[in-house]
Simulated scan of single mutants.
Amino acid sequence: MTPTNVISSQDRLVLFGLGLFETLLISESGPLFSDLHWNRMKKGASFLNLKFPDQSEWTRLIQEFIRLNPASFPFALRITLSGGSPGTDLPAQLFFNVRPLPYRPEQYLRGIKLHLLSAPRNEHSPLVSIKSTNYLENLLAKETAVRYGADEGIWLNTKGYLCEGTMSNLFFIKDNKLFTPSLASGCLPGTRRYTILELADILNIPTEEGLYTVEELLASDELFVTNALMGLMPVCCVNDVSFTVSPPAAKDSLLRRLESAYKQKMSGYP
């Protein structure tokens, strides 16, 4: 499977938005956490019955693309797997796209603002478990949050429990314990969500995955969101409720301890 820049008008990605994507953070060391991204796309490809390269071929294709398309580090590499067209014997295609990182250093110092979205996330949809290219709902929800002066929107599910951000997973800290909505809430199994829970276990930070209310979120001591490009992003405000954002390396902040461990883990790649 060779990446291409040309897509057929018969491809189901064009006709129906049928496909998958992963966005990898590329540093001087190479693609970070590519194994987690490969595993998630592989599961999605199996779910959609799409042909997908094995991990060694995936890694080779990424490294070859980076070599032939130099860019300033760090940057984002989006990998899209199209749906192809079984009716015309058109196989699934891979597409690679590069873009700069959208997050600014000052955001990690002061935190970002979240807006609680009024439209719910459907936790029963089969799409919540895969990274689908059918992303219009996310884009519209993000635009709604921006109109309210926020940087990111947070979905509740149809039962009113916290779910996820439009482009991120949600974490909050209360009484030195880390909480995050469980996959049963309808949130995407994020690569950095997995990594943060793994790091918390290493640091002996108690964790809990469950179904939580807005009231529990607003009563938290610290909160942050995660995705592949932002890593851990502190939150300073949810709607009109403000939260203290600890300074970097603050020893009494679980958020900053996790941030430090995450940076150390990134420095160890590949």
Rank of each mutant, 00 (worst) to 15 (best):
K174A: 01
F96I: 03
T180V: 11
L24Q: 11
P70I: 08
Y212A: 00
D151E: 12
I26E: 09
D151F: 08
P270I: 01
D240M: 03
Q107H: 12
P91I: 04
D240K: 08
F179K: 11
K265A: 12
P234Q: 13
G190Y: 13
E64A: 15
L24H: 09
Q55M: 13
P105L: 05
S27P: 01
L68K: 15
K43F: 01
R121N: 02
R99Y: 13
L117N: 00
K177M: 14
M167S: 15
R60E: 12
L81H: 06
G268Y: 04
Q10T: 11
L232Y: 11
T191K: 04
D240P: 01
F171Q: 12
L139K: 15
C237S: 14
S267T: 14
H124L: 08
S242R: 14
R40T: 02
Q55G: 00
N157P: 07
S246F: 09
G44T: 09
A145D: 08
A228E: 09
A184R: 14
S260C: 09
M167P: 00
R78M: 10
T80Q: 03
E64P: 05
K131I: 05
L36G: 15
S267Q: 15
P126R: 07
F33W: 13
T195Q: 15
P31Y: 02
V238D: 01
L197P: 02
P74Q: 03
V14C: 13
L68D: 10
L114A: 04
S267G: 11
F243E: 02
L94I: 11
P206S: 06
L170D: 06
I202R: 15
D11E: 06
D201R: 15
F96R: 07
L156P: 06
F75S: 06
G19E: 08
G210A: 10
C187Q: 10
F224G: 07
A71E: 07
Y148P: 04
S9L: 10
G30R: 02
S9P: 00
R110Y: 11
P86E: 00
I173T: 09
T207H: 02
L162F: 06
R99M: 10
L68F: 07
F172W: 08
G153V: 12
M167K: 11
L18Q: 14
A92G: 13
L101A: 09
P102W: 12
Q107W: 13
S9W: 00
T2S: 04
C187F: 03
P126C: 06
S34H: 08
P234I: 05
E64F: 12
A76I: 08
A249I: 00
P270G: 10
V238H: 03
L170W: 13
N204Q: 11
P248S: 00
G165R: 06
L139A: 14
